[in-house]
Write a protein that binds this DNA or RNA. Structure first.
Lengths: 336, 336
DNA sequence: AAACATGCCGAAACCCTTTTCGGGCACGCT
DNA sequence: AGCGTGCCCGAAAAGGGTTTCGGCATGTTT
């Protein structure tokens, strides 16, 4: 059974060399395709290596040339639905570039984060990606780290650090532009927890876009929580005024609003258009009608963070904040 | 700025020793708390180490004593909502035991999986956890791997391998037991994709529990897809017979059923009780009434997999399939 | 005072791989 | 025959840390 023999010594280059009747130097050259080996010697070595299923010890190699081909991914949490696509994007970019990802979850705890940082540096990661949980800026990991760091989702408070963040203001803007383009004029906004920068940023974008078109938001920004329940319970107040579109701070809120409108017999999109943020597939999937949503491109964010980290490793990244532009995914709820 | 100086050589034990005026051997002993060092020499070394923020190179250490303190987490995908809690549970267990996790996503591709396996073995992981995407058994990673492997979610086809899997049959049973305990007798079952073992296993559990109580399922098992849409569209057929409870193959299906019942004016739980599987928080959160659901304890599954891997490393795990018992989370939809 | 014990430190080997450099061998040319 | 010239191969060092063992100096005992 394959779970047996856990103590068996791993096969080393010396074993291969010995069995092939050559020196370790020759074996190394044969395996790595160096020139100074005769074809038949090379073949003999390769055969033995194959037979023993030899794998060069990446650690020994790393200790030589100073970089390990590993990067640390230090995430604030794994619960939220935001870290995951970022993680996927980063894993994607790294996988292609032959780097491996060491994953650490600090679970919102700064102490744990520092602990993980210590072990990651001890393992000589070539670089670090730090994934935040809110878009609010966060203090940098440390002041004099020996490896480059890219902050994503939450930027570093030091603007000189490399950060990749979503454009929440633009997202709000895009939502309104889309509604305006489809003929809506009386637009209300219900959002999530006011302590989140994501909520206030999106609201700022909504208002800015409205103002540019000489319009005003209908009613106040109704901050609450990022839940369907809030979406449902806030709908009554929304409908007290004449409204033909509702911008919802998240897909969950939007879903709650859709439900409440449905119960009241308000037709979507005929009477009122509804738009959400995040384009969160499992939440979108169940909406009736299908929900138009702003996709923040989190996966692209993870990829960019990985790319910038690579660039930093080669000294080709000057730091600074980079933003990822969201895009609208048009579905039925805005009358597409 | 902290992203600078990426090429700066990392501080080594030799640097510390030199600055403290001792040999590397003494520095090593001082830092690792070995006895043969005078207290003041030790303090001097520790001060220097602190000042240089020295971190012992884990690679060099690993190359010595043969194990790295890293484990590979080879997941079939990151999209699904099942791999994530497993990953969290495993990361949790490892973080406590001072092992680091190398994360690889094979994205359902066997070739990619083998590639990742190669790099992980090259990095000399001490062990591997393989996370599947379906509960159907999968072929083992390889026949003669140098490190222990624990398969989770999807077991290995080799029963001698160490596997940790959810009890889907039991889950179906528990759902029915709960409904019976709350006085229901006419129970229907709507489920997801029939090609998933999770669907048929749960259905088998449902039927077995019914039979034990001398009851029969109302209507056929209505297989479809794991979606709200299927839940909604299958409801009409369900109601053609006299039904006082519906077991739904997933929370999404349950939610669709709840919606459809609501639209038809059927009261939940007064007229019909509804129960789901997976206890998937974001889906549960929006349900009206709050949905009773069977929690498969995925996080515990990840933890157990990690624990068994540790046991294997110490030769304390004989292999074999272990199951994780689900539990019912009672909420309003079953009249709690 | 001499022998001995003890405590502290350093030299060197080891782990595994890569790379440089030097040496041996065969062959061709004169 | 002797010399030069490539071609292959192997010895050795490097990289960072741990560990063993030997040595030195001091303190203790007789």
């Amino acid at each position: 059974m394959s779970t047996e023999a856990p103590g068996r010594r791993q096969v080393t280059l010396r074993d291969v060399a010995q069995l092939a009747g050559v020196s370790v130097a020759t074996a190394s050259k044969a395996i790595n395709g160096k020139a100074e080996v005769s074809p038949d010697t090379r073949q003999r070595v390769l055969d033995v290596a194959e037979r023993l299923s030899f794998r060069p010890n990446a650690l020994a190699r790393a200790i030589l040339d100073g970089h390990t081909g590993t990067v640390g991914l230090l995430t604030h949490d794994l619960e939220g639905r935001f870290s995951l696509p970022i993680l996927m994007g980063a894993e994607d970019a790294f996988g292609a570039g032959r780097a491996s990802v060491l994953l650490c979850d600090s679970r919102g705890d700064a102490i744990r984060e520092q602990h993980h940082l210590g072990t990651l540096l001890g393992r000589r990661v070539d670089g670090l990606i730090v994934v935040g949980s809110q878009t609010d800026a966060r203090p940098p990991l440390g002041s004099d780290l020996p490896v480059p760091v890219v902050y994503t989702y939450a930027p570093s408070t030091d603007p000189a650090d490399a950060s990749v963040v979503p454009e929440n203001v633009t997202a709000g803007r895009i939502a309104v532009e889309h509604l305006l383009a489809t003929g809506r004029r009386r637009i209300a906004h219900v959002s999530g927890d006011v302590t989140y920068a994501a909520a206030t940023d999106r609201a700022a974008g909504v208002d800015a876009a409205l103002e540019e078109h000489g319009l005003e938001r209908v009613g106040p920004v109704r901050y609450g929580s990022w839940s369907e329940a809030w979406g449902r319970s806030s709908t009554a107040a929304l409908l007290e005024q004449d409204v033909d579109a509702v911008v919802c701070g998240s897909d969950q809120i939007a879903r709650g609003v859709l439900d409440a409108l449905h119960d009241r017999g308000v037709r979507v999109p005929e009477d009122v258009a509804v738009i959400g943020f995040d384009n969160w597939e499992p939440m979108i999937a169940g909406c009736r009608p299908a929900l138009t949503s702003i996709d923040m491109n989190f996966q692209a964010m993870g990829r960019r963070a990985a790319e910038r980290l690579f660039a930093s490793l080669e000294g080709r990244d000057g730091g600074g904040v980079e933003t990822i532009t969201p895009r609208v995914i048009v579905r039925e709820s805005t009358g597409g």
